[in-house]
Design a protein around this nucleic acid. Structure first.
Lengths: 248, 248
DNA sequence: CGTTACGTTGACTCCCGTCAAGATCCGTGG
DNA sequence: CCACGGATCTTGACGGGAGTCAACGTAACG
């Protein structure tokens, strides 16, 4: 269940694991103090809805731990995922009354929340936050456009390998491990969620995973634990330019 | 050809047709003066490339008149359009050395340009520009995500009707005409560009246009002049929720 | 006119979606 | 401990929507 947690369970901003990447990254001591005054933490279990499209946007905030997804549902039920939110990512749009899409936890997630109104006031008063928000929005825009290429032009196999490479790289970077040779990771989402992300059906996702396994590009233990023996070979199937330039 | 035009051919910022919508919309007189000092105009003919992916980003700027497109090309030549730039839209990302995608004029276009470095300095010094840029980026992000739904989940027919409805509404709003009954407009792009935008081949675009014509949802004179006898009927084919809420 | 770019149409193919049946995993309770 | 049920995942058979390849129309322009 949702719970509003006392501040003391969590580290102070100075010790926060997302301190150097989140919306507060470029805040000075004073700005951080003012943010700290209005922040509060909330947790959501996997599968719990965090915000509903069309609802009033009561709070905004950062993902501290866990993972969530943004998605939109068409009237006939088709679902398209629009974003994957991992630690340090920001939820909500200051300056907008209503939520633009559904937000749902796909793993147990902890958020560092700010009520929207006080946060908006703070953004206007402290340029550092606005500037950081601008940079993060521009990053999100680049991610969204990269994803548009995938959705509009890539084959099912390319889509799957892109997603696997994305998760693999992100996991490796979180663990500060080298991007080479065999790397293993836990897929943070179900086959269905993968399909929602990639614009595919669950059956196609499953078939492509099987095909990649048979081709030796991935190994699986259970359905979530993936091993990539050779990342370069996998990335050769993404349809992207894999020359060193575009590694994030 | 590209030409760098003397300032005098163009209106001063105070008289500019995009004054109230572009990145300068919320600038005060002093800020506007500083922008005016570093601005210059450039024009590009239809089909001319404005920026190339990977090139150094020499300038940023606003579309004053005409239309341009953002796109990315995969190594094997597949093209996905990522954005349609119309008057008041901003080109370029401050804080980034290189251009992230190709920018090409699809009609004769006039830009109000700023060299990137001085503009970045100005953004840091004048909060109004940064704030405006943030709002515009968030708008772009919403458009991109809306487009992700289209690319990932919609059928060819839905894609086409979405695009037609988009252009129709935008044209009507520019002309300040009511959004009802029969409305006519000029398609600002070729069938090929439509396909690049929608993640379709040119043949599929053409076939769907023919189908819509045979179904009486659109009329055509030549291939670019479109008449929509009843916008509501067309929008019923977009797959979207057409309850009054989501009209922009 | 001829040339060239752009658009339309047809025949055919194939990738991915749909429908359906199993398989696997896992928590619960008898 | 095993049976049961539900959720998740896999696999198969089949069909359709959109891509591919190719030919033909049409418009613009010298």
């Amino acid at each position: 269940m949702t719970r509003i947690t006392s501040r003391s369970e969590f580290p102070s901003c100075a010790d926060c694991n997302i301190r150097h990447r989140a919306v507060c990254a470029t805040c000075d001591t004073d700005e951080l103090r003012r943010l700290e005054e209005i922040k509060y933490y909330r947790s959501f279990d996997a599968g719990q809805q965090i915000m509903f499209e069309g609802d009033e946007m009561v709070f905004v905030g950062s993902v501290v731990t866990g993972a969530a997804k943004l998605s939109r549902t068409l009237p006939d039920g088709r679902i398209q995922m629009l974003g994957l939110l991992l630690p340090s990512d920001f939820i909500g749009r200051p300056g907008r009354e209503q939520v633009g899409y559904d937000v749902e936890a796909i793993q147990k997630v902890t958020l560092c929340c700010f009520r929207r109104k006080p946060f908006e006031t703070l953004v206007e008063a402290t340029p550092h936050i606005g500037q950081r928000l601008l940079m993060m929005s521009l990053d999100e825009l680049e991610v969204a456009r990269e994803w548009m290429v995938l959705l509009g032009r890539k084959t099912a196999r390319e889509k799957i390998t892109c997603l696997l490479a994305l998760i693999a790289r992100r996991t490796a970077s979180l663990q500060l491990r080298p991007l080479k040779d065999s790397l293993s990771f836990e897929m943070p989402m179900s086959r269905e969620t993968m399909g929602e992300y990639l614009g595919l059906t669950i059956e196609t996702v499953s078939r492509q995973m099987t095909a990649l396994r048979k081709d030796g590009l991935i190994k699986m233990e259970g359905s979530r634990t993936i091993t990539i023996p050779d990342l370069a070979s996998l990335m050769a199937e993404t349809g992207d330019d894999t020359s060193a330039a575009r590694l994030s």
